[in-house]
Each structure stands twice: as C-alpha cells, then as structure tokens.
Amino acid sequence: MDIKAYIILSLVLFTIGIVGVLVRRNAIIIFMCVELMLNAVNLLLVAFSKMHAMSTAAKASANFASDAQIFVFFIMVVAAAEVSVGLAIIVMMYRNVHTVDVNFLNRLKN
C-alpha cells in the first residue's frame, strides 16, 4: 500500500473530528470527536511505523520500527486517563447546570 492512502484516510478522519467539534454543542459528542482525532493520529503513526519497517535501517534493529507503536500505546494510556477525568468533569457540570451544552458555559466572557 502507498503511504499516501493512509495519510489521506487519517486526514479525513481527523477533519471529521474537527468538524464535529465545531458543529456540535453537546459536550459528550465533542469529547468523542476528540477521541476520534486521537485515533486518526494513532492510525497514521502505526502506518508510518510500518513504512519505516520497509527501510534498510529496520533490518539492523528489531526495535527500530516498534517505537512508533510504543508511542501509540502511550497515547492510549493518556487518552484513557483523560477520558476518566473529562467524563467526571462533564458529570459534574451536568449536576450543577443540568445541561451539557458547551455554549451555556460562556462565563469566560466576563
């Protein structure tokens, strides 16, 4: 497979995530869009790791191509942590204002 196919796929997914963040107002959906963006990046990282596995340098070291996948692993770790805290915040917010509309929380304005 050509690497460009993966790049374009990741970009499309990533942009869908961005558009989701822009057009939706439900905090949970926005959060999910962020997860989608993370996953698009993960996919691209894995694709690049496999691209590097084709190179001659990869023959010398077994670890050469797996670094990017370790990186993906850590991204998942961070994402899991983030989700736990983020959802807690959303629950908290819902309990206080009984809505998950992000525009309702425009207190930053003043």
Binding site: M1, I3, K50, A53, M54, A62, F64, S66, Q69
Partner: peptide
C-alpha cells in the same frame, strides 16, 4: 510503501 500483513514490529 507500507509493509502490509508482514513484519514482526507489531
């Protein structure tokens, strides 16, 4: 090119 369905890095 991307290595497909092969390689042990994963």
């Amino acid at each position: 090119l991307v290595q497909i369905n092969a390689g042990d890095s994963g």
